[in-house]
Amino acid sequence: MTRFIIRRMGGLLFVMLGVSLLTFFLAQMVPVDPAATALGANAREEQIAAYRAQIGLDKPATVQYVIYMGRLLRGDLGQSIRTRRPVIDDLGDYLPATIELSLAAMLVAVLVGIPLGVIASLHRNSWSDALARMFALVGGSMPVFYIGLLALGIFWRQLRWLPGPGRLDSAISAPPHISGLYTLDAALAGNWSLLTNAVGHLILPALVLGYFSAAVLLRMTRSAMLEVLGQDFVRTAKAKGLRDRVVVGRHVFKNALPPVLTTVGMTFGSLLSGAVLTETIFSWPGLGRYATTSVTTLDYPAVMGVTLVAAIVYPLVNTLVDIGYSLIDPRVRVS
């Protein structure tokens, strides 16, 4: 067991190292002098040279990478050129918003995708199956930025059923910072009006962002269910006279679940990608928007920080899923 965890963690470490190398390489590619950008247009040559020396830009790339790694290990991601703050502080502000949105979207995906997938598989080739497949198809083919714009236009502006962009109404101030997830923090503070407000603001972006993942989960659940339904033991169970519902509940769904749960873990990465567009439209102050503005302004210390963190979250979640599994079901370790 321990060896398995160590091996997985070792693999994770290796990926992290590669990720840091890749982000570093990316930053080297940028055709802009970070020192000149940081000091502004009025900087003199000697100022720029001094700053270059100070942040180590005058050294060869390999030395720079070593310095960069050294700072990274101390948790120092450098300073953002645009916001003039430590990148780690910026990320501390923006990351919780994205995690909250991603978790909510994941909830939507699980609550919509899995049940629909089960229903579709049980009524294969019926109208409900066709409808569910249609739903999945549109979800996988629709530009997320269009649905986002449309949803805001309809549900906020026209119908006024749901609140507009942002994480809270403008006049409401954020709950005391515990986790940075407004819904959780509001609940912990026992502030119900704040909680409802935060949840209200989450609904639209979570639905929009979760739609794509719901489609993926639906497909996965459906095919996993169909596969199990075709296996011998189901037929045996049926032959033994178990009623369909019990068969489904006790045998099929249970056995179809592992690949579905793995997919849930893997969808997390695509949620982070989707967040880039969703956050832009919903003025959601998260990692995606921070990444977008940082790339637009060629603020590469910030870009390196974001990509690094984003690239850590995904394999970390997957490793945790795997380890969590292996703790419960030792057979997983074999594969």
């Binding site: 780690i88 502080d89 919780p96 515990i178 940075g180």
Partner: peptide, 14 residues
Amino acid sequence: MLLAILAACGKPAA
């Protein structure tokens, strides 16, 4: 585990 990561992330601000 996710919440633990989160708590760790939240720490710099706290």
